[in-house]
Write a protein that binds this DNA or RNA. Sequence first.
DNA 1: CGAGACATTGAACCCCCTCAACTAGTGTGG
DNA 2: CCACACTAGTTGAGGGGGTTCAATGTCTCG
Lengths: 174, 174
Amino acid sequence: MGTPTSLPSNKTIFKKGELAKYLYRVESGCIRAYSKLNGGRRRIHAFYFPGEYFGLETSEVHSIFVETVEPSIVHLVKRKALVSRSALDIDIVNFLLHITTMELQRIQNHNLLLLKGVPERLVDFLREIQRRYQSQSEVDLPMPRSDIADYLGLTIETVSRAFTRLKKLQLFPC
Amino acid sequence: MGTPTSLPSNKTIFKKGELAKYLYRVESGCIRAYSKLNGGRRRIHAFYFPGEYFGLETSEVHSIFVETVEPSIVHLVKRKALVSRSALDIDIVNFLLHITTMELQRIQNHNLLLLKGVPERLVDFLREIQRRYQSQSEVDLPMPRSDIADYLGLTIETVSRAFTRLKKLQLFPC
DNA sequence: CGAGACATTGAACCCCCTCAACTAGTGTGG
DNA sequence: CCACACTAGTTGAGGGGGTTCAATGTCTCG
């Protein structure tokens, strides 16, 4: 279901303020969603991986920016079609409720992450990536340090140092 | 709709791991929802004020702790009744979708709050309280400093110092 | 009055940020 | 092929803001 679209790296999918026409499903690649903070800083709310949905909005316009991290394929589903069908089809509403709930859970976890110590944040992040890629082996991260930093609420230097410490202690298979 | 229940101050409404039997609506008072972090620390996710809903859960059991902050009256709605009716009544599902979306929005705002500077966090917090109480005048806060600290991701000392600075500068009507 | 909870204030420390230098990989043009 | 530039990442030194620890203040309730 939906139209598959192939996108290059660092390609804007939608911007804050634009009309929210679609709901998106990641087929392959990696997506980042972020806000711009006062002070020119950037806050990454989420990464989306294959099989996951994004573009969910509470209003008619997007409240965040979304881009590809690496070359990706995404499926587009028209919101209008969903909304009009949801008036008749209870499964559609339940589907929307389900992905909204998933999003809620994800954000709550992210929230808790930001209270932990630096090494724990990074380890949690790596573990979650691994889990969501459904990979037992090592995952090479698709996103640069700056993305990780903005997701973990740190600077790239702190992230880099945390990686080095982790590698030295060999506490995590990188 | 729902059964009204009167509760004293600092009364547990439900704990993590308990069966999620009800959806709750605040009639009067103030409610806090929190998680316990490793290290004995506490993270307050949200306060709920009159007219707002809580107890929303993604699974069958509660994932957080919820208590009264002050003497409160809450209405209980049986989840089972909601769920069984939602299979037939699309308005119920839409209602659930709506309060889930509200919750999502609230958490996103809270998330952004934690990246700001200390004085801004406090001001934002006070403004939000004022807004949600629908009060133009001063609001005396129902919760102790420790609750505010755990909500803003700070210590009680830092919160106290921020209050003092705010009062001295008279930037906020306290 | 004294006890206990809550709040405020001060001093020292620690951790992360900032600024800066350096390395490594990649691509471009002469 | 080499020189240069550009980007991403790493590492070091210094400074600042929040935490920690400790003392004091304030209020209520016995």
